[in-house]
Design a protein around this nucleic acid. Sequence first.
DNA 1: CTGCTTGCAAAGTGTTTGCAGGCCC
DNA 2: GGGCCTGCAAACACTTTGCAAGCAG
Lengths: 151, 151
Amino acid sequence: MPSPAARVQAALDVLRARGERVTRVRQAVIEVLDSTADHLDADQIVGEAAALAPGVHRASIYRALATLGDLGLVTHTHMGGSAAVYHLTVDLPETAVEAQSHAHLQCSSCHRVIDIPVAVLDPLAARVERDLGFRLEPQHTALLGICADCR
Amino acid sequence: MPSPAARVQAALDVLRARGERVTRVRQAVIEVLDSTADHLDADQIVGEAAALAPGVHRASIYRALATLGDLGLVTHTHMGGSAAVYHLTVDLPETAVEAQSHAHLQCSSCHRVIDIPVAVLDPLAARVERDLGFRLEPQHTALLGICADCR
DNA sequence: CTGCTTGCAAAGTGTTTGCAGGCCC
DNA sequence: GGGCCTGCAAACACTTTGCAAGCAG
């Protein structure tokens, strides 16, 4: 795991490199996402970003998340039916790819989110690509089920 | 594939057996879902049910779908971020299980839904159950990706 | 008749958008 | 200072809920 500041800096560097502006809102979103291992929904991000950028508006958070998503710095995952959750996906050279890229399981009972290495989905991805020409993007969806604690 | 009427009758029988009332709205919903192989969202069901039960209201469709879902007659799947889709899951004795139970792929580009046999997910389900004690419910979520046509 | 179901309207989530002003570069 | 970003408010899409009237059993 790289030092937190490194991921924030790397993200800001990408913004600059792509000619996007480094604004208070975007910086706050990146720092909030960097500060936790959890998956935050837009509401939680608004709440935490308010401490770093007083007066931030929901709509601006959504727009910042969309921009960062377009740049590949943030990935969002749709939880079964409810709010989408977001997390940083900055590619640092020294970071193992597996640490960044993961798929999600969500418990339909307690709503807990469990990360799994995306490699677990590789055989499935290979099969649907071979059989159907369908290229899976496993990061974007949570698989529902019942977690060990809730059974 | 059993005759369409058989699935409708079987569903109505389950309703009666459980002491639930057989109403015009519920009957219309079952017939609409039985009449197509597609996955319909609530809006489409409202549209088609209007022909069978003039004046049906959205809210009643949602309530009927909830009731039928509780009885296990209808399964809903959350498509990445957008409206949930519904389909009949009546267990007829003469129906092969695989015909009923399937998982879903959705193209993030054209939003087409592709059914895959749930068995394709078995190895994955076995692995997360063994490693994490997580019991996958593959019917309830669509996996996102890019379909062959959109690449 | 009894009370579960419906229709209606309104509220509740989660997210997007048009516009005028503000800040980054 | 030019133009992208932001705040605000309103709209939007999907779903749920409170209430009085209606129909199933």
